Simulated assay, not measured.
Amino acid sequence: MFEFFTDRGRHAVVLSQDEAVALGHDFIGTEHILLGLVGTDRSTAGDVLREQGIDLERARAETVRVQQAAGVVATDGQAEKDALSSIGIDVEEIKRRAEQNFGEGSFHFPRPAYTGRAKRVLEQTLAEARELGHERFGTEHMLLGLLTVREGRGAEVLAALGTEPDRLREAVLARVAADAS
């Protein structure tokens, strides 16, 4: 599926994974997808979100607040590391060697998995692109997918930042129409 994403769309996906890792989460939720979209420069979704007053720093701070309120704890994959340690595998040693050979930040374990809602957002991304007659999926389709699902912490973060989903959707569609003309 990711081969159908535009370069900016793929970059937003990678940023969402990076945000999850940076926050110490062993999952990628709708909130991480939102952070990936906000963090993508020169992209339709990133530009529209910033025009709506949503910057990465505020979105990240609100994400942390929403997660803490929901009881989400940053585990940094400790359960998985403990399981491997119990059979004699030292994840920290593997990380040290990987970074020694391939560079700082080259090894992340565990690689976060997408939550069910995040998968629904990505599935809706496809539907949004098709609805607009587009063959490739960009950040605009991802944001429209996030707005269509309307569930999860990404939606909570947008609401807490004072964003109205319908108004944001209209802004994205207006930008897509302007870019097409």
Rank of each mutant, 00 (worst) to 15 (best):
residue 166 D to A: 12
residue 104 E to Y: 10
residue 146 L to K: 03
residue 36 G to M: 05
residue 40 T to I: 00
residue 21 V to T: 14
residue 13 V to R: 02
residue 176 V to D: 01
residue 111 R to Y: 11
residue 6 T to M: 03
residue 113 A to L: 11
residue 109 F to R: 10
residue 149 V to R: 05
residue 94 I to V: 00
residue 140 E to W: 05
residue 144 L to M: 06
residue 153 R to Q: 15
residue 129 A to D: 10
residue 172 V to M: 03
residue 16 S to I: 03
residue 30 T to C: 07
residue 131 E to P: 05
residue 115 T to L: 09
residue 177 A to V: 12
residue 31 E to C: 12
residue 144 L to I: 11
residue 162 G to T: 09
residue 110 P to R: 09
residue 106 S to K: 09
residue 74 A to F: 11
residue 67 Q to F: 15
residue 97 R to H: 06
residue 75 T to K: 11
residue 27 F to M: 04
residue 98 A to H: 11
residue 3 E to M: 11
residue 3 E to C: 04
residue 91 V to A: 00
residue 76 D to V: 15
residue 98 A to P: 12
residue 85 S to W: 00
residue 39 G to P: 07
residue 35 L to Y: 04
residue 123 E to M: 06
residue 85 S to D: 01
residue 64 V to E: 10
residue 143 L to Q: 03
residue 18 D to H: 09
residue 43 S to V: 02
residue 176 V to Q: 02
residue 14 V to K: 06
residue 156 E to T: 10
residue 28 I to D: 05
residue 115 T to D: 01
residue 180 A to W: 11
residue 79 A to K: 15
residue 53 G to K: 12
residue 91 V to I: 14
residue 100 Q to F: 14
residue 21 V to S: 07
residue 6 T to G: 08
residue 109 F to I: 00
residue 87 I to E: 06
residue 136 R to Q: 14
residue 36 G to E: 06
residue 145 G to K: 08
residue 115 T to N: 02
residue 133 G to F: 07
residue 61 A to T: 04
residue 116 G to N: 11
residue 133 G to D: 10
residue 172 V to W: 06
residue 33 I to W: 00
residue 64 V to W: 10
residue 49 L to H: 02
residue 118 A to H: 07
residue 99 E to R: 14
residue 13 V to Q: 09
residue 70 A to W: 07
residue 178 A to K: 11
residue 48 V to M: 02
residue 74 A to G: 10
residue 143 L to T: 08
residue 77 G to V: 13
residue 78 Q to P: 03
residue 76 D to Q: 15
residue 35 L to P: 01
residue 174 A to G: 00
residue 13 V to T: 00
residue 60 R to I: 07
residue 75 T to Q: 13
residue 79 A to D: 15
residue 92 E to V: 07
residue 92 E to C: 02
residue 141 H to E: 14
residue 43 S to Q: 04
residue 111 R to C: 13
residue 73 V to E: 15
residue 90 D to N: 12
residue 138 G to E: 02
residue 21 V to N: 08
residue 177 A to C: 07
residue 66 V to N: 06
residue 125 T to C: 06
residue 140 E to I: 01
residue 163 T to Q: 13
residue 51 E to W: 05
residue 62 E to F: 07
residue 60 R to S: 06
residue 26 D to I: 02
residue 96 R to F: 11
residue 33 I to F: 01
residue 49 L to N: 08
residue 34 L to V: 09
residue 31 E to S: 13
residue 120 R to P: 01
residue 104 E to V: 07
residue 47 D to C: 07
residue 140 E to C: 06
residue 143 L to M: 03
residue 145 G to V: 00
residue 51 E to Q: 15
residue 88 G to N: 12
residue 138 G to P: 00
